[in-house]
Design a protein around this nucleic acid. Structure first.
Length: 550
RNA sequence: GCGCCUGUAGCUCAGUUGGAUAGAGCAACUGCCUUCUAAGCAGUGGGCCAGGGGUUCGAAUCCCUUCAGGCGCGCCA
């Protein structure tokens, strides 16, 4: 719908000698009484053309008046042009949507460009918690969306297997292991204290018995660290798999060292003239690229800072040939963005090719009361717990009901309540209902097979005004989708689906699809089919199941 | 102290990147089950878009400022 309008407007602009690019023409959905789509184009052209908005609007209207797309084109207010599409056009588009959903519901804005999304990347030092889950849902949804938007997408998980954190994990397990074998050693300060530490220690005991008892941690650190973090990583991978989030690539931090990429990263920056020495440390002049202060890469004691392997890591991403890199981080890391962005630019990549999406905290309520969470004490709600409690689909959907950079509250009672308070069920139920209708139609012999047959045309007077509202909403999917893809905002799809379901349920109650009137029944079944196709596509983008039955 | 984010209906949030009289859902009240699933539907009320100033044809949206809340500001990771 939007696409066709854009093309028509482009032609109109050309005929006015106005130099306007198609994709910058602002097209919006106005209030219903104004029409189907609307553009303030004439207002924008007023200045360059040095004419009044209304007279430009009149010329545009003149130029498009011959198009069979519209039933009505009107100028309103200060110079808006409102378009009402013809019924014939809407019905033709509806049939095209059913016939070729893959063409209609995708927008090629990526042009095959390669894009990598890195997300979750939780330290393998403990189970995934809710924040990780939100990041996982966002990353997976975004990757689905960008794929439908014509990008080639890779999903990557970065494994922090080299730093102090995994060492601390190993140490914690070591202490627990000794304790289980009756050799209590001091538990490391800032060690990990969750029950899962005991679990790993027991597993290690089961495999190695008392082989390490009495040894110092420094003697056996390598073994304990590896055993513990690999086990943690397995658990994380299992959680993600059960959550329905799969990665294409797992990048190990250690591997960066093994492949000498950390050193190469520094050399690269040095050759480009962004490195200097001061006070016995090696610095990166990140202030040349918008950071507030320069950053140390190699400390006085010769060790790398946390930042250094990260530079190597991002350098590698680009070396793999990606045109754009998206990182999804917890919002508490936002202060880290300027230096990472500086590093990317210093390595010769555009500022726009690197983008960080922030994910805010998720807090849990139970019947309106906050559920206590304290990571320090090792007590936090895990992704696993919430999945077990309310299901992976509901969890994903709820994680995507807000913009990712605003805090999210989830009330378990509501999430479990399978009622209209729960938006997931509301949307899924619309889908299940349509299947239920199809089931009945098949029983009644109205059609056979998966879905109703698509005719070459339908008498468009069969549809009433309520139905045209639904059709318009369905045909707006591509425009909504385009916005979601460009802004990298999956929540727009969630909202759209809620609106769509919110239109379908009333329709279902007001009208009967299967009646004695055969042409009418067919027309309505086709509308339901379109609804089904769009609901399924939208849910697929979110990574949520479209249940045939509920 | 500096920086980033947030502030929209009683509550939770959208607001199509500057457009028309600012929208949903929940909660509240009133109705609706012989009929394709009541896991649903119909109807009603609800606003100084935190406050102030500016930019322009036009601001919830952009700029300045004040207030309130959150987060971040290491040769930590």
């Amino acid at each position: 719908m939007e696409r066709q309008l854009r093309a028509v407007l482009q032609d109109a602009c050309t005929s006015l000698n106005a130099n306007v690019q198609v994709d910058v023409i602002d097209i919006q959905v106005p209030k219903e009484e104004f029409g189907d789509l609307s553009t303030p184009l004439a207002m924008g052209l007023a200045k360059p053309l040095r004419k009044s908005p209304r007279s430009i609007a009149e010329q545009i209207v003149q130029a498009v008046s011959a198009s069979p797309l519209f039933e009505k084109v009107e100028i309103a207010g200060p110079g808006f042009i409102n378009f009402t599409f013809s019924k014939r056009f809407l019905v033709e588009e509806l049939l095209r949507l059913i016939d070729k959903p893959d063409t209609v519901l995708r927008e090629d804005i990526g042009g095959g460009k390669r894009i990598q999304i890195e997300f979750v990347s939780a330290n393998p030092t403990g189970p995934l918690h809710l924040g990780h889950g939100r990041g996982a849902a966002l990353g997976a949804a975004l990757s689905n969306i960008l794929q439908d938007a014509g990008y080639s997408v890779e999903k990557e998980f970065y494994i922090n297997d080299a730093g102090r954190q995994v060492r601390m994990l190993g140490h914690s397990v070591y202490a627990k292991y000794q304790e289980l074998l009756g050799r209590t050693v001091p538990f490391p300060e800032d060690g990990y204290r969750g029950d899962y530490i005991t679990g790993i220690a027991r597993a290690l005991m089961a495999e190695q018995s008392d082989a390490y008892v009495g040894k110092t941690f420094d003697d056996v650190a390598g073994f304990f660290v590896d055993f513990a973090y690999l086990r943690m990583l397995d658990a994380i991978n299992q959680d993600l798999t059960d959550f329905g989030v799969l990665f294409d690539s797992w990048q190990s931090e250690r591997r960066l060292y093994v492949d000498n990429l950390v050193e190469q990263g520094i050399d690269d920056l040095r050759q480009r003239g962004h490195i200097y020495e001061q006070d016995g440390a090696l610095w990166f002049r990140s202030t040349d690229f918008g950071d507030d202060k320069d950053r140390v890469l190699v400390k006085q004691d010769g060790a790398y800072t946390y930042f250094t392997p990260d530079i190597a890591y991002h350098r590698k991403k680009f070396e793999k040939g990606f045109d754009e890199i998206i990182d999804i981080w917890g919002a508490d890391h936002h202060g880290y963005i300027p230096r990472m962005s500086a590093a990317v630019q210093a390595l010769g990549h555009s500022k726009e090719s690197f983008r960080v999406l922030l994910v805010q905290l998720v807090s849990l309520l139970k019947g309106g009361q906050p559920v206590q969470m304290s990571k320090r004490a090792g007590e936090f709600i895990t992704l696993r717990e919430i999945m077990d409690e309310i299901g992976a689909d509901t969890t994903k959907f709820l994680f995507l009901t807000r913009r990712s950079d605003t805090p999210l509250e989830i009330d378990i009672e509501i999430a479990k309540a399978q009622s209209n308070e729960n938006p997931v069920f509301y949307v899924q139920y619309a889908y299940a209902r349509i299947n239920s209708i199809f089931e009945k139609a098949r029983e009644a012999g109205v059609f056979t097979g998966e879905s109703p047959a698509i005719p070459d045309s339908i008498d468009f007077s069969l549809y009433n005004e309520d139905e045209y509202c639904l059709i318009r909403k369905l045909l707006l999917y591509p425009m909504m989708f385009r916005g979601a893809a460009l802004a990298r905002e999956p929540h727009r799809i969630t909202f759209y689906l809620q609106e769509l379901a919110g239109m379908f349920h009333p329709y279902y109650h007001k009208y009967r699809v299967i009646t004695d009137d055969a042409p009418m029944t067919t027309a309505r079944l086709l509308l339901c089919q379109a609804m089904k196709v769009v609901l399924r596509r939208g849910l697929k983008m979110l990574g949520v199941q479209a249940p045939e039955r509920m």
